[in-house]
Design a protein around this nucleic acid. Structure first.
Lengths: 183, 183
DNA sequence: GTCTATACCCGGATAGAC
DNA sequence: GTCTATCCGGGTATAGAC
């Protein structure tokens, strides 16, 4: 397993997440790597292949979480906790995936509608059985809150997620899901 | 005030928000407009100028909200409500701004650090006086929840924001800001 | 205000030597 | 495994006629 290949992935992850996929050129990656663009093509058949190499694992992790939903009744605390950990583990990628439309399109080309479908399943699970529109909105709010608060926590803590922060984020997200008084 | 200019902005807003700024070409805009790319340059000096024409107003609205923070003590309900309305009014643009890194960079070139600075002020205002890290995280969570839930509500309601949905989102966001029991 | 034609550049990708 | 050199396509932008 070429360590050059790993270096390329590491560099690409950094550059893609900072400047975006389409704004990052092969030349940028090569410069950081200390070689020329042609050298990249020994390790990857295309620029898109580098992206694929990056998002494959987080996407699989995503799917693994979703599959748990089919084997039992959805439990929001565990579900939300799993997404906090996923966001923490692959923070550059999660940011990249839902920030750049082109990246989403690239994923969609391999697994059509897969990503939107997965998100939809999460929302449904968080909204609970027989949800009204308010419940759906709370689910969206909780899901977004999880992702962004986790990123913020990591940024505030030099790259790692403090367990206390994780607990705080989880509690906050669970509060979102509670119906408003009067419903 | 050329109505062609307005048509271009409308088309660009739609395409930019759907496919991203960098993935949208002048040819895409021209095709939708029913002309050639050269015609665009009679109305705008560059592609970037079209983007500027789009984000100018939402950015000003953003700034106006921020300025209220200096004229009085921050009131989370009003602040969050204002951001719900802003997100609803210019939903394509808010999505565009914080999704595409290149767009953020373009804004930054005109008003360096302005956007990040504004967000930081909002977070501080939401976190309240003398915030610990948990309060900062709750502020991030609430801010993200507002934006995404508002977008979801509009999508669920064929393009408009139902007042009942607005109220629900606001209440959910306020629940996020409450300290966890035990703090 | 819009056209045709084109200049110009840049990014991805390939060929073939070393 | 990396290089030099180059091709090719597509994207922004311009020149100048109508």
């Amino acid at each position: 397993m070429s360590q050059t290949r790993e270096r390329i992935l590491t560099i690409a992850r950094d550059l893609f997440s900072r400047h975006g996929y389409s704004s990052t050129t092969n030349a940028d990656i090569a410069r950081e790597l200390g070689t020329t663009t042609a050298a990249l093509y020994y390790h990857f058949p295309s620029k898109a292949a580098i992206l694929d190499g990056l998002v494959a694992e987080p996407l699989a992790a995503y799917r693994r979480i979703i599959e748990c939903l089919n084997t039992g009744p959805p439990a929001p605390p565990e579900l939300l906790g799993a997404f906090i950990d996923l966001a923490a583990d692959s923070r550059e990628l999660t940011a990249l995936i839902d920030r750049e439309p082109g990246v989403l399109a690239a994923i969609d080309k391999r697994l059509p509608r897969a990503f939107e479908g997965m998100i939809q399943q999460v929302i449904v699970a968080l909204a609970g059985p027989d949800p009204d529109r308010a419940a759906i909105l709370r689910a969206h709010a909780a899901f977004a809150a999880i992702k962004h608060a986790t990123m913020a926590a990591i940024a505030l803590n030099h790259g790692t997620l403090d367990p206390a922060d994780r607990a705080e984020i989880l509690l906050a997200a669970l509060r979102i899901l509670q119906p408003a008084a009067g419903d």
